[in-house]
Write a protein that binds this DNA or RNA. Structure first.
Ligand SMILES: [Mn+2]
Ligand SMILES: [Mn+2]
Ligand SMILES: [Mn+2]
Ligand SMILES: [Mn+2]
Lengths: 227, 227
DNA sequence: ATCAACACTTAGGATAAACTAAATTACCTG
DNA sequence: CAGGTAATTTAGTTTATCCTAAGTGTTGAT
């Protein structure tokens, strides 16, 4: 029997910290204070303070000077926030005419205000989508999330044909550029040319041939097959 | 030329104070500290503190020991919050299957998180409704709100026929009861009988004859004509 | 005219979340 | 392995919002 303490509702700040830590620890490494500070646009000292509070609440495992990881409970909450964020983005784009480059900021605030009931109503209204407008997978209401093994376009070999599945950026200008270039998720592309030393690559898309810089190509996560 | 100061975004608390003060001052009287404390479920001392802050921000006119009124700017913000709240309620009921007794709590949180863009998208999606699910008028995006002269059912004479237009309560149990009794806004009713001394009255509605206690009848705001 | 009851404000304290400045720790490099 | 640099934590403030307890103002009833 787990002694589930009665938990105060988390603050907006706490929820954003847990989400950021989830992202930073996706690779298995602990998240550092400075990285976290940069992700949240805060001073490192502020992050140290919040880490202490979240650790005391049992949401983080903190090794001083070594970084933090999420506890099972912290991870559960982070995934719930991720579901909220992505369901909200999906709903706003599908039903309220938002574009994929403006929807992130709105979701960033709403994710802290919606009830579970509302999130599930929105998800149900859309037929329980599996990915959001950026191709990011939406965790299930129970907390499972299927992570698909995607490869960045920047690492696809010349001659290979792939499908863009996901765009790993929340930057509005980049998202607009990608959409204008006709490289949104679902687009089939073939790599025509690659320059060395992190140079640009040329791809053939339905919209025509495109030259894509290395950094941008690294944001375009692709799959070979139908998924 | 008005010297419009650059204003920090208001906090959730401040926004709820302004809304509460708007409601309490609808009759023209200043709002008292204790009444505000009761409306917001806070200690009176806390309200005194917030009154000072909001006054310094130019949102309230405070006469110590006499109460507060909204300034023009405070009123503008209060009406914006009211629009948000009521548009959100309308949208959730119309598009996400909320019932009129559960929608208030959701809107109470969301009203602080939505952008102006989202509010206008929701309003437009519904064809810019003029009233919310409880019959409360929705202020326009410019801040005008048409207040209709309604009479409480509790003051309608025997034999008179009226239409329920608005239910002046956010209490879920009362709202459910009213819906079950078939007395939602839009319903035509005729007063059949009235007992004296704030006693119950009998009304004929399409759903049949109903006995309605005085306090509940006072919440049912009615009109004679088509409005 | 007084005073008790009630309303309101002030005083002082807690908590959350941010900051800057000043330690402290880790670790790489020579 | 000593030192320097970068990362991190600690110390001390600030602001917002709440609280309780204590003091002050208002007012109606005697
Ligand atoms: Mn957020
Ligand atoms: Mn997304
Ligand atoms: Mn509210
Ligand atoms: Mn309403």
């Amino acid at each position: 029997m787990t002694a589930d303490t009665i938990r105060e509702p988390l603050t907006r700040s706490s929820e954003d910290y847990l989400k950021a830590i989830f992202h930073l620890t996706q690779g298995g490494e602990a998240a550092g204070t400075t990285d976290l500070a940069q992700a949240l646009d805060l001073a490192p000292a502020s992050v140290s303070g919040m880490i202490k509070r979240l650790s005391e609440q049992g949401l983080l495992a903190h090794e001083p000077y070594r970084g933090v990881k999420l506890t099972a409970e912290g991870r559960r909450i982070a995934l719930r926030m991720l579901r909220r964020h992505r369901v909200i983005e999906s709903y706003l784009v599908a039903r309220l005419d938002y574009s994929w480059d403006t929807v992130h900021d709105e979701a960033e605030r709403l994710e802290h205000a919606v009830s579970d009931v509302l999130v599930e109503r929105m998800a149900a209204a859309l037929g329980n989508p599996l990915v959001d407008p950026h191709g990011d997978p939406i965790p299930g209401a129970n907390g499972e999330m299927l992570e698909l093994a995607h490869v960045p376009l920047s690492e696809v070999a010349v001659g290979d044909a792939v499908v863009v599945r996901r765009v790993d950026s929340a930057d509005a200008a980049r998202l607009r550029y990608i959409a204008d270039a006709g490289l949104v998720p679902g687009t089939a592309v073939t790599v025509v040319d690659r320059q060395p030393f992190r140079g640009p690559m040329t791809v053939r898309a339905p919209s025509g041939e495109r030259i894509v810089g290395h950094d941008l190509a690294a944001l375009l996560l692709c799959s070979r097959g139908p998924r």
